[in-house]
Amino acid sequence: MNDAQSDLILLLSGTGAFLAVASVIGYVLRVKLSPDGSNTTIENLNARINAWWVMVVLIGIAFIAGRVGVVILFAFCSFAALREFVTLTNTRRADHWALAAAFFVVLPVQYYLIAIEYYGLYSIFIPVYAFLFMPIISVLRGDTEHFLMRIAEVQWALMICVFCASHVPALLSLDIPGYDGKNVLLIAFLIIVVQMSDVLQYVWGKLFGKTKIAPRLSPSKTVEGFVGGVASATLVGAGLWWITPFSPLQAAGLALTIAIMGFFGGLVMSAIKRDKGVKDWGHLIGGHGGLIDRLDSVVFSAPIFFHIVRFGWSLT
């Protein structure tokens, strides 16, 4: 067993132990406070913990399966996220082929480019080629009603759900000296920091939250939750320096960056939900809502994290 594998197994078993503790707490809370299942907060907490188990197992399997496994997992995530996003847009009959192209051409091509590590093309394929050719396909049908809104919505859907999300598996293509074969741990670092930041913001907010930070966008988010959550997620990131190529201080700086990006990602996606008059993006994950509800902070932080690491540490 090499270094990377032992780190990975240590990390997965650590996460498993963490969730096991959470499950026990959830069970005790349920027995004590909500034996008949009537306390919605506790029911929601348990639904979330169970969904976490499923997500961690899926990610664990993908990590063990290696690069192809991770790329396929995120391709499916992108597919489900794009399906949720496009459901809420104002597309018309005339967009049919452009949408079909987004799902069945752009998405697979983007992930294929990630799989073959073609950085020069996957970093521009969607912003250049997809963004120019999809409006061309739509315009050929001659329907001008809400044209700008329609093409802009679909482009943003692709940007968020495919382009940004694909930068998570793209971390595997970075070539960092002395870190061969361990890139999958960068993904683990990103996901753990972002998700812990979400969870800790929720916990800090529930315990000490008083001052609403964005009352019109997300009434449950508070200044106390934001500061406490981001600060403790930064500490979590610093504590994970041993799985990364970074020093503890660098790990803390990167964790701070991705936690803040994740927070604002959540705000932006909330604003879109408000605009569309929905509470959740979908119902894919019990207790969490749709896939985008869980992925929103990851997609905002992934490209930034990718480019900082590529600029500062990677040879390619």
Binding site: L82, R83, V86, T87, A100, G282
Partner: peptide, 11 residues
């Protein structure tokens, strides 16, 4: 929609 061959994934 009527007349299309390829379905679009929507919820």
């Amino acid at each position: 929609p009527k007349g299309e061959i390829v379905p679009i994934p929507l919820i």
